[in-house]
Nucleic acid binder design. Structure first.
Ligand SMILES: [Zn+2]
Length: 378
DNA sequence: ATTGCCGGGAC
DNA sequence: GTCCCGGCAAT
């Protein structure tokens, strides 16, 4: 554990612009020392108390550990969220409980998530199944994870139904790979049936199936996957929700929206836990241990590596809302399709305010261009 | 009035 | 692509 923060680069923020570039050097006296030879890294101005530093370190630690092992986030994530509400459904996940879905599927719970790395382009094919099948070929790269002995057979008659499945830790599910379908079922036979019926247009008969379905679903084990997703997307909202009885399906879509929608008014000030992200990069100031900018005409700028967007950082797994012809979802979203709602405005002081209008050249590029500040992000 | 920044324009 | 600004919402 010695010196874990290798990733943090404390680049020296060198004095902004040589004082000879015709810049109105009014501020020069305040910020930079006129000594050309001495490397004085700190741009002066409001030196942060040690406290801020501590915060920073913690945050860094969190980030580090998280980004290091995004896969095993399961462990750390649990200790991470103070969310008691999580327990219920987490347990639920762990046990092979049945009867989750109110949907027509028998006994298998369904969780629509059109994640995958595939493109969100075409909505699922409303075409005649056969045609569609030919047009799209294989919806996605067929990738199977091998975790439990699921033979790569070609005859589905082997009825691998109701597997004992992993007892607790690693559940395994089967996801339909068909474009924008992403249906997730719990058993191989179920998913095969689904594909055969829904996508291939075959009859429900398990008879002479050439095992083609096999190409359209993938197997993945939740327990990590799901928890990751779940924690990230569920937690933030459930803090305010009237408590969701079961879990996911209810509003995966609307859960993702908040990333760019009005939610903060309530959350931002009330709940200190940003859940997924872990911390508030508040009072960023000079303390944010970030590589400040270099005024060397280069545009390499801002922030620490790997994480640039406020919340995208920890969740590389998008769970696209699936743009199918959803209709049963009731009148949920404000349906302001074209209008981009304004962000509620972060609470951090931005370059403009920090440096003042007359040190414009100290601002980050974004601020200079009147764009969203990227140095002091919210 | 001030601040943050989207949308759009100029180059 | 970089750079700037009008104008608006939030403060
Ligand atoms: Zn800025």
């Amino acid at each position: 554990m010695g010196g874990g923060f290798a990733g943090l680069e404390f680049a020296l923020p060198q004095e902004p612009q040589a004082a000879d570039l015709g810049t109105p050097g009014t501020w020069a006296g305040a910020a930079g020392l006129p000594t050309p030879s001495v490397h004085i890294p700190v741009p002066a101005q409001r030196s942060p108390p040690g406290k801020a530093r501590l915060d920073e370190v913690l945050a860094a630690a969190a980030l580090t550990s998280l980004s290091t092992s995004p896969l095993y986030l399961g462990t750390s994530a649990v200790s991470f969220s103070p969310e008691p509400d999580l327990e219920p459904w987490r347990e639920a996940l762990t046990q092979p409980t049945d009867s989750y879905s109110p949907s027509s599927n028998s006994g298998d719970w369904v969780w629509d998530q059109a994640s995958d790395q595939s493109s969100p382009s075409t909505p699922s094919p409303p075409l005649p199944p056969e045609a569609a099948h030919f047009l799209f070929g294989e919806p996605t790269q067929r990738k199977r994870k091998v975790s439990w002995g699921s033979p790569g057979r070609v005859d589905s008659s082997a009825a691998p139904d109701r597997h004992p499945v992993a007892q607790s830790a690693v559940q395994v599910v089967f996801q339909c790979l068909w474009k924008s379908c992403g249906k997730v079922l719990r058993t191989a036979s179920a998913i095969q049936r689904h594909i055969r019926l829904v996508h291939l247009g075959r009859r429900a008969e398990p008879e002479h199936s050439d095992g083609e379905e096999d190409f359209y679903y993938t197997e993945l084990d939740i327990g990590v996957d799901m928890l990751t997703n779940g924690l990230c997307s569920l937690a933030p909202t459930s803090a305010e929700a009237p408590v969701p009885p079961a879990f996911p399906h209810l509003d995966l879509p609307s859960l993702l929206r908040p990333l760019a929608l009005p939610l903060p008014p309530l959350l931002s000030s009330a709940v200190p836990s940003k859940t997924c992200h872990g911390d508030h990069a508040h009072h960023a100031g000079e303390a944010t241990g970030g590589s400040w900018e270099q005024v060397s005409g280069h545009s390499g700028e801002e922030r620490s590596p790997s994480c640039s967007s406020p919340q995208g950082c920890l969740a590389p797994v998008h769970v696209d809302p699936q743009p199918t012809e959803g209709q049963a979802t009731a009148p949920a979203l404000p349906s302001k399709l074209g209008a981009s709602l304004r962000k509620p405005r972060g609470d951090a002081k931005k370059c403009r305010k920090v440096y003042g209008t007359d040190h414009r050249d100290l601002w980050c590029t974004a601020c200079r261009w009147k764009k969203a500040c990227q140095r002091f992000l919210d």
